[in-house]
Nucleic acid binder design. Structure first.
Lengths: 166, 166
DNA sequence: AATATCTTTCACTTTATTTTGAAAGTTCAA
DNA sequence: TTGAACTTTCAAAATAAAGTGAAAGATATT
């Protein structure tokens, strides 16, 4: 396989995978592109390589910065902004875990807590509370796991997992 | 909060959350509805409670069966099919982990392996291989984690996590 | 302060996904 | 074997999401 083929396939695969996890395709493709780029890329570079519009490129690059997955990079003496991805994939994973936890798990935990406050006393509400209770414990588990990932050092983390889950 | 309010909020929240993780809203809402239902529900019950069409209900109920999250339930002497959800939430989590692993992680691991086979020798392809390598290790980690969840007994799992990640 | 270069915004278009509902299919009791 | 009761399918419609591009907004340079 040539580099160009592999690159195309990688960007494509990354985009597809992201879609299945509720992330938009362009954002994932931009991320993929920057991950494998040896040099910082400008908005125009991205537009050209992915064949997307300026607006689209701009919006999703902002979003990636917002997620902490890429950074602005200014070249001395140039107006144009360039972008570099965080290349340490374990840092990327930690960052994603952190953000998803903040944006999704925490709000859900709050709603679940709120839902425990049902005050009638029927068979339905008994069943309901049981289910909410179960979900809360699973959500708590997910939260701890993500938190562990967030806090972990790469090697420590792998080590622990190998010990426990081999 | 009354039961009806809580129920509505739960179904709504579950649907929204699912969307963020790439699962369609109706499917999640059906799942939520069945999770808290003390009795098996028919397609018509679901149609009425969620205000959705027959086709939509049918399609997503099949899909939930396919994911192993709900089961057909036949009442003696009735033609009509009823559905019950798996109520043990840890089993649900394990089932989801299992399916996502099968449907998503495994294919990705294959593609990553394939992508290692780039055969040119430029700075770009060196960077590329480094990135793919990193992603492979994170993906492997995700795979092991999901696999641990799949294999784990509830109490064992919680215990291990408390030990390691407290 | 005028101009050039680059970035951001946003109303609109396009594409993708979801949902509908009517028709076709299935099953079973009579 | 018929037809009533129920399920499944699928083309079309509706909805939602993503993407476009031109215009407005910044910012640096002369």
């Amino acid at each position: 396989m040539t580099y160009d083929e592999a690159k195309a396939k990688f960007i494509q695969t990354w985009g597809t995978l992201a879609t299945q996890w509720g992330i938009n395709r362009t954002m994932a493709q931009l991320h993929a592109l920057l991950l494998i780029a040896p040099e910082p890329l400008s908005t125009e570079d991205a537009m050209e390589q992915l064949q997307i519009s300026r607006g689209n490129a701009n919006m999703n690059l902002r979003e990636l910065i917002d997620w902490g997955l890429i950074f602005r990079h200014l070249k001395p003496g140039e107006r144009r902004e360039y972008f570099v991805a965080e290349k340490d994939i374990w840092k990327v994973a930690r960052q994603v875990a952190k953000e998803r936890r903040r944006r999704e798990i925490k709000p859900v935990l709050e709603v679940l807590h709120e839902l425990q406050q049902v005050d009638d006393n029927t068979p339905e509400s008994a069943e309901f509370k049981r289910v909410i209770d179960g979900i809360s414990s699973v959500a708590g588990f997910a939260d701890s796991t993500l938190n562990a990932v967030v806090r972990a050092e790469e090697n420590w983390l792998m080590g622990q997992f190998m010990k426990v889950f081999k």
